[in-house]
Design a protein around this nucleic acid. Structure first.
Lengths: 239, 239
DNA sequence: TATTGGCGTCTCAATATCTGAGATGCAAGT
DNA sequence: ACTTGCATCTCAGATATTGAGACGCCAATA
């Protein structure tokens, strides 16, 4: 796949932002990470600072800027998080299991909202937890509809296979048994953005003993419905 | 103030992202909003789509892309939200009032986390609520340390004055009485990002009868402390 | 049904912007 | 005191970007 957008400066700026995703980065580190010439990186980084897409920390290192959070909020993140609470609590109560929403974060998925089953044996995933993109039903959802290159990258060293992901796309939901942690089962469904692309996964998880070896059979419908409600919550603020 | 960064393409791309902050936008609307030539906007928007900073909705309109949410998460937003829960609950319990965190969103401030006083008379601000940047102690905090142009813009039509903001900068906290809503008092303190810039405001709010006409006198210390804890939560993930 | 207008997309000659080698300044280390 | 590494800046030259105009498509209108 062609890796350039047709606007060289934007390609380079995207490289800088990608490099900063890992955390505070000196100019020298940015030069190494992006492969660009030092004055080029310097000029682009200062331009991004000007627009608050990047900032500098107290040691002068470059960091991702607060404008990105503003834009993320405008992209609907706040509405997703606001809608998540009631919908996850409904999902928790309907299924009797803990419910979560995950977003992709590079090679990880991050829990951005959760509603925990209050008593007894339960799978606890606090907000902020980073889990692997290589295992679990939420990872399957976040990878299944990616374009070819990102799909192949997602499958590399993953606990699931292309055949499993084909099934996910066909059924519209995913299930896993003991992929992330022995004894834990989970079911997930997609949350889609305005373009129809998958931007998050809504999930329940709990012990295999309670969820059985076919947790999707019983729970897929209510989880898919939660995904649709969340998708609508994102759209509602735009039209 | 010079409004260009020195890299023209990045200036133009920032104009496009700014225009999309308002919601789904056709190419024609983007051309009007940015003042750029149609093929230029088209080319830049497609380049941003390529990098997932922008997407297209089902009607072909341009929208802000999910990569922005990923980058916002990497900028610490998730860690702030994760840390917010316990810290806001501590603040609520210590002060006996509802506690919130606000981020700036253009001409608005958005509640991104809250912990509500469970009983009796209380100020309820659900997550996702958009409040004015022209009134309230959180608005004062979000404006007080801005650069000159954004400071002047923030003061335009505001319920607070330059003298009030000078006091905010000196004391490190803000208070307001009935600015946003009659009968409601609030106190706020800054949450700072890695660069030391204010990226959010942590607040309590409640009835003037309970908070008195000098709410900062009694509560400022514990709110400033909450701001420092949240600031540290953002930094901890980076070093 | 035919025509018109508006919008999105594409081309490419012209030129303005961007690039990066090299210079400079500074601070930390030896 | 000297050296090294890093950040910042300059500017001649190269090339990427620009935007006028063309094209295609579709919805609205006569």
């Amino acid at each position: 796949m062609d890796n350039t957008s047709g606007v060289g400066v934007i390609d380079k700026a995207a490289l800088v932002l990608d490099a900063l995703e890992a955390g505070p980065t000196t100019l020298a580190q940015l030069v190494a990470a992006t492969g660009l010439a030092r004055p080029t990186v310097h000029r682009l980084a200062l331009a991004l600072v000007h627009h608050r897409l990047v900032a500098r920390d107290m040691q002068g290192r470059f960091v991702l800027g607060s404008r990105l959070v503003e834009l993320a909020s405008a992209a609907g993140e706040d509405r997703l998080i606001a809608a998540a609470g009631p919908i996850l609590m409904q999902l928790r109560d309907a299924t009797g299991e803990s419910a979560q929403i995950f977003r992709r974060q590079g090679d990880w998925r991050v829990c951005v909202a959760s509603a925990e089953r209050p008593v007894g044996l339960r799978d606890t995933i606090p907000v902020g937890t980073q889990l692997s993109m290589k295992a679990g039903s939420a990872a399957q959802i976040l990878v299944a509809w990616e374009d070819h290159d990102r799909l192949l990258e997602g499958l590399n060293n993953a606990r699931f296979t292309p055949t499993v992901l084909a099934g996910v796309r066909r059924r519209g939901w995913a299930q896993s048994l003991g992929e992330r942690e022995p004894g834990v089962a989970s079911v997930s469904a997609p949350v889609r953005g305005p373009s129809g692309r998958v931007i998050a996964a809504v999930s329940i998880s709990g012990p295999i003993e309670r969820l059985t070896r076919q947790p999707g059979r019983q729970h897929a419908e209510v989880i898919c419905n939660a995904g649709r409600l969340l998708t609508e919550a994102l759209r509602k603020g735009n039209d």
